[in-house]
Simulated scan of single mutants.
Amino acid sequence: MRCSSLLSSRPATRAGACALLLPLLALTACSVDDTKARGSADGASAKTTAGASPSAIALQPLDTALQAKVPKKYSKGTLVMGVSEYSPYNTFGSNGEITGLVPDLARQFSSMLGIKITVQKTTFDAVVPGIKSGRLDLSAPAGDFVERQQQVDFTDFAQSSVTVMINTSASFEPTTGLELCGRKVGVEKGAGTQNVVAALTEKCAAAGNQAVGEQVFTDLSSAALALQSKRLDAVAAPSASNTAASENSNGRFKTIEIKDMRSLPAATAVYGFESKKGSGLAAVLADALRKLHDDGTYQKLFDTWALSLSTVDKAQIAVNGSKQHQSK
């Protein structure tokens, strides 16, 4: 993650912004020497070098039965996985490395299926068009909603719920969703949290209150910087990203769960790997994930990235398994 690319245009905020981001980078952007050459042989691209898994969590060996299930289109060449920043699933390092749970899972897939996978930076709203056009083959994580299943296939592997992150130096600490009415709330462009805010705005109107002042950002790091400079009152985002930002903010941020928001559309979600509709790739990834679940590697990886509360049961690892709607 480059501070300069995420900063506000206001020069006065730059030092504080970098100070905020550095503790998080120190925890998530470390690397190990033996991963630097993996991309060309048995793992994902060197850009996906992860902090702990290659040395502490062994890569699964090639599974010839799974390899035989890989659609011919993907059995040769390199699969491109586009990811947007969403720590600790995906964290962009200052040296260009991408670390997190998703790159670590990509390494496991690469080793088990005998295919090359490279992980590249993109924005969340560019993922579905990229997969449909063939520019991208995979992405994760993304909420598996019925509406999205019409465009791409999902391989479900995790779960999440929306939380609200606030600036501890401000006096604003909401306890109900209606307290966000009339407030400036940051969300990531194209994410399900936009639907949460839209539904909350309807509740605000019904109660005779002002609409939520939705502020859309291309990534959650930019939203966090706006919260730091108090250009926002709160950031609405899934629990994993808000919690990671809060825990590594030296007390600047606090993440809270507002219970009456959990019933809003898209406030809770099952996360999946996205792949091209009807390509057959989603089913192969599901088989690989079930195997990782059986031997304990799945749990170890989630524990490594402090995502223990985001795991799902083996039975929930499925293709387009969610029946949840994004907007109703």
Rank of each mutant, 00 (worst) to 15 (best):
A56L: 14
L232H: 04
A269Y: 02
L227A: 01
A226L: 07
G208I: 13
S279D: 10
R10G: 03
K291H: 06
P141C: 11
A237P: 02
K259C: 04
A29Q: 08
L178D: 12
T304S: 13
V270K: 07
A198P: 07
V212S: 07
D144A: 14
C18A: 06
L285V: 10
R231T: 09
S222I: 00
I317W: 11
E97K: 13
K76R: 14
A205P: 02
T175D: 13
L264E: 02
L136P: 06
T193R: 06
S160R: 09
K300E: 01
D42W: 03
M112A: 15
L301H: 04
S249I: 03
A44F: 04
L22I: 01
F154Q: 05
L289G: 03
L25D: 01
S222L: 01
A52H: 14
A198K: 14
Y74N: 11
N250Q: 15
Y74H: 12
S40I: 07
M165Q: 10
L27F: 01
S75V: 07
A211P: 09
S249D: 08
T35P: 00
Q324F: 03
D42P: 00
C3E: 00
G16F: 02
F124A: 12
E179N: 13
K47S: 15
T176N: 13
D153L: 06
K73C: 00
L200S: 08
I57W: 03
G51C: 15
E97F: 10
E274C: 08
S45T: 09
D287L: 05
L292K: 07
F154V: 04
T78W: 06
S139K: 02
D156Q: 14
T163C: 14
A211C: 03
K230A: 11
G177A: 12
Q228W: 04
Q108A: 09
S246M: 03
N209Q: 15
S263D: 15
M261L: 15
S110E: 02
F157D: 06
G96Q: 11
A37W: 11
T64G: 05
A223N: 06
A26K: 10
A65N: 12
C181M: 07
K314I: 09
R10A: 06
S53K: 08
S246G: 15
R107G: 02
V197K: 01
A205R: 15
Q299E: 14
S4P: 01
G96R: 09
R14G: 00
S139Y: 00
R262T: 14
Y74L: 06
S84L: 03
D156W: 05
A106D: 12
T35N: 10
Q108T: 11
C18F: 00
